[in-house]
């Protein structure tokens, strides 16, 4: 970091105090409390607590439902971001060509950012309804072709589609901004070297976009872990048969419906570590994708 000019300590304290108090109270205390509770057996209605060491972890880790939820979370974390980023990349490359009407398209593509997952979930339930929705005609031809209320895979697909819909805007903004900062001279040099526009997509644009692609992956990974909650809660409530119960939803149910505070806190800790390890891994990778522009 470059050296700052001012040096007054009290002024400095006054400037950073608000954010520190805020994140201490509403972030660090809850995070610390989750770690603390994962080592205790908490009674739901203030019945006191008892130190149990790693028993909570043993209990959670031996629970098949936990592993199922973790596995589904992992699959979801791979499928949804890959689709969202892949589609966003194609859209960004297309929008970057500056065709007539593309500024309107650019505007519309960002709208889903302003629509809550829980709100669009309500709409998607209807859109994917086996009898009223878009697949209803197919169901009439092949009965049972599509039914997310019964078929776990169908349900999972609806959540993925909704998540992708919700996730496109942010990735699109980042990738398009990245494309627009590719220096004009580089493009011109490639033209002089005889690279066609198609060729430049692969040889110039995507390679130079690696930092932004990387950024979108990091953000999407963390985002999808938690953002799916609003979709699941309004679309499938974890069903059918737990097929869409991701870890974030299971924690909510365990903590707020079953009042298993210690179990929920323990899973919270595991999920936090999971996210932190993923982010750390991705930042290790980052060293390989940075270019000097």
């Amino acid at each position: 970091m470059q050296k700052g000019f001012y040096s007054g300590r009290w002024t400095y304290a006054a400037l950073v105090a608000p954010i520190l108090v805020l994140i201490f109270l509403f972030f660090y205390v809850p995070v610390g409390l989750a770690f603390f509770w994962s080592l205790f057996l908490e009674r739901p209605f203030g019945g006191g607590s008892q130190f149990v060491g790693l028993d909570n972890f043993a209990r959670v880790l031996s629970d098949a439902e936990f592993w199922d939820a973790l596995k589904r979370t992992a699959i979801f974390m791979i499928v949804a971001p890959s689709l969202a980023i892949g589609i966003s990349l194609m859209l960004a490359l297309a929008a970057d060509r500056g065709l007539r009407g593309s500024s309107a398209a650019r505007n519309i593509i960002i709208w889903p950012k302003a629509v809550a997952g829980a709100s669009i979930g309500v709409v998607f339930v209807f859109v994917f309804n086996p009898f009223l929705g878009i697949f209803a005609p197919l169901n009439e031809i092949w009965p049972g072709f599509w039914n997310p209320r019964i078929d776990g895979t169908d349900a999972f697909i609806t959540i993925v589609v909704a998540q992708v819909w919700n996730g496109i805007p942010f990735n699109f903004i980042i990738l398009l901004s990245g494309l627009q900062t590719i220096p004009d001279t580089v493009t011109k040099a490639a033209v002089m070297d005889g690279a066609s526009p198609w060729r430049r997509v692969w040889d110039i644009q995507i390679p130079l976009l690696t930092p932004q692609l990387f950024l979108t992956f990091v953000l999407e990974f963390v985002g999808t872990v938690v953002e799916a909650f609003g979709l699941i809660d309004t679309m499938t409530e974890g069903g059918p048969g737990g097929a869409t119960t991701l870890l974030i939803y299971k924690i909510y149910v365990d903590g707020f419906k079953a009042y298993d505070l210690s179990g929920a806190a323990t899973q919270t800790v595991i999920l936090m570590l999971f996210v932190l390890i993923m982010v750390a891994l991705q930042f290790r990778l980052e060293k390989h994708v940075k270019y000097e522009r």
């Binding site: 994140i23 109270l25 509403f26 972030f27 205390v29 809850p30 995070v31 409390l33 989750a34 509770w37 963390v222 985002g223 872990v225 938690v226 953002e227 909650f229 974030i248 924690i251 909510y252 903590g255 707020f256 505070l261 929920a264 806190a265 919270t268 999920l271 936090m272 996210v275 932190l276 982010v279």
Partner: peptide
């Protein structure tokens, strides 16, 4: 760190604090 761990992750204990 606050950017890497979204609120939804720690909703159980945040509830207790609030």
């Amino acid at each position: 760190v606050t950017v890497m761990l979204p609120l939804e992750l720690v909703v159980i204990t945040t509830y207790q604090i609030v």
